[in-house]
Design a protein around this nucleic acid. Sequence first.
DNA 1: TGGGGTGTTGACAGCGCTGTCATACCGCCT
DNA 2: AGGCGGTATGACAGCGCTGTCAACACCCCA
Lengths: 334, 334
Amino acid sequence: MSRPTIYDVARESGYSIKTVSRVINEAPNVRDETVARVRAAIELLQYHPDPAAQRLGGGKLPTIGVLVDSIDDPFFAQVVAVIEARAMDVGMDVLVASTGMDQTRMRTQIQRLARRGVAGLVIAPFGDEKVVAEALPHDVPVVVIDRKCGVTDKDVVRVTDEQGATDAVRHLVARGHRRIGFLGKTSAFTTLVDRYAGYERALGEAGIEVDPRLVETRAWSAEEAYPYALAMLATPEAPTAVFAASPMMGLGVLRAQRRLHRQDVALVIFGDYPVAELMTPPTTVVDQRPGAIADTAFDLLARRIQDPGAEVLDTVLPTLLVPRGSGELAPRGS
Amino acid sequence: MSRPTIYDVARESGYSIKTVSRVINEAPNVRDETVARVRAAIELLQYHPDPAAQRLGGGKLPTIGVLVDSIDDPFFAQVVAVIEARAMDVGMDVLVASTGMDQTRMRTQIQRLARRGVAGLVIAPFGDEKVVAEALPHDVPVVVIDRKCGVTDKDVVRVTDEQGATDAVRHLVARGHRRIGFLGKTSAFTTLVDRYAGYERALGEAGIEVDPRLVETRAWSAEEAYPYALAMLATPEAPTAVFAASPMMGLGVLRAQRRLHRQDVALVIFGDYPVAELMTPPTTVVDQRPGAIADTAFDLLARRIQDPGAEVLDTVLPTLLVPRGSGELAPRGS
DNA sequence: TGGGGTGTTGACAGCGCTGTCATACCGCCT
DNA sequence: AGGCGGTATGACAGCGCTGTCAACACCCCA
């Protein structure tokens, strides 16, 4: 009364377990009629191969592992959701793990996932490049998402951080802003360095000099960003617009704006977030399109699982500026 | 150069693989000195047991499966995040799957997870009670979360839906509201039936008769809720306050309010959502405390894994009314 | 007619564990 | 002294697959 095994299917179909195995794995050189009969037996018995046994027998687990900063971050939640959907389509399961922004933990989690014998891994790494390079496994296909972190021997999917930031700041400049603040911890992530570069570029194009008083690079979390944003908005030289280089920074700014009743300060956030369109004013964002990142990552992973020797790709997806109101505000008093 | 196996540990420590196995599984009747030596060898070799082999050998996979409506729903994302954190603490991995609110898919996903040989399952079921009862596996520990769905032979963790709704509506009544709208698809979930009951109860206590024009039970998604909310707020008998029985309904109402510039209508949403405190006005919610649900579910699952015969528990957690502004608005014109 | 593919199938040995059962040894009671 | 029960350890057979290699039937070409 236990689950049927490959032996049951073999007996039922009249073939050997090896032939059944071939049918399951769609191996070549099996007669059509044989395939049909084995399939019929599988159907009849409602047989499903045991993943653990498949793995142990020599194959990989029909599973892909996903490692992200935090599962309930809306960005990563969507990444996980899309990967799960794609995996389900091809009969794979998804193991999730989070780093909690801790490099040691990142390393441990990667090892654990790799140890389980997953077919592939989607990883959002962070931090020191050397640590990342050492932590990434070499015996299992990996696709790196969101942050390159100096990785050159793995497929990478990320977005045009600099261009996206440039777009955002240009957008503000086009509305007449000249005093545009920047928030984002550039020391932590190369993505933020790139976004800052985009900020500088857009200002440069407009002939605006970077005012260090309007650049805040110390905060990482929304909680840390809040006081800095507060301070920046409260100064006499307060910016008329702010570019928040991440949703966390954006939250800090929004809280500060609310606190100071300064909804008149224009704002563009890099990274969309839920209900942004319901804010007052609705928040203009640079959408990183997590779904597209996840889709591409899945495609690349599937490709690498199938062909481990395939050329290593560094895919850079475009971002999308979504004007919703906060980024279209004119400079105060103009 | 491959990963060390139990044989390597046995050789290194001078004991048999069986004794090593005993140490790994903390089996009784092993001398302290033996344990110490084996542990030392494990440490030395950086040995980690192969989960697939453990599973195949007779044990369960050190993995727990989580099945929810949708992984990027903030409520479930937090549930998954907490379970992953808890699982990591005890060296377990987490397999995620989503139902997409499709009963057939729910069934398939449950079977797939059970087939993998997970140690336990956390499931948010939905829909027809008979289907749910048939879909839940009997050969693996299961904890049902969020919705009871008529399940009586599994541990359940949910919240005080009726009480939470009563609290919310009482809160509105206390501010002087007498025309209070209700939105929520009561036909789909028992949780929503309970919330409606809470609504009715609070009104009854206040001697307010239920006005069917203020009760909308047809919508499920935010998209569906929007037009209904719009219609309700646009009528001459428009409510001065609305109780949205789910975050989805809440979104619909918020969009309608924005569209009609009716931020003066008081609103309480059942279920917290990100940045609710940054809305204008900040949204008062009944917090379901997904983290607490997940924590409790994990505890119950661990308990059941350890003792499959333990008494079946139906745990009902309290909700938390979080006043933030929208629920404290006085009736229009008063 | 024989040699050498090519296509199709099966026997069998693992993969790295755990469960079962056997074994060896100890102390203690009668 | 003999026997018994409890403790500590090991030998060995699976668990349900896949990889390797062999077997066999055919077919083609020389």
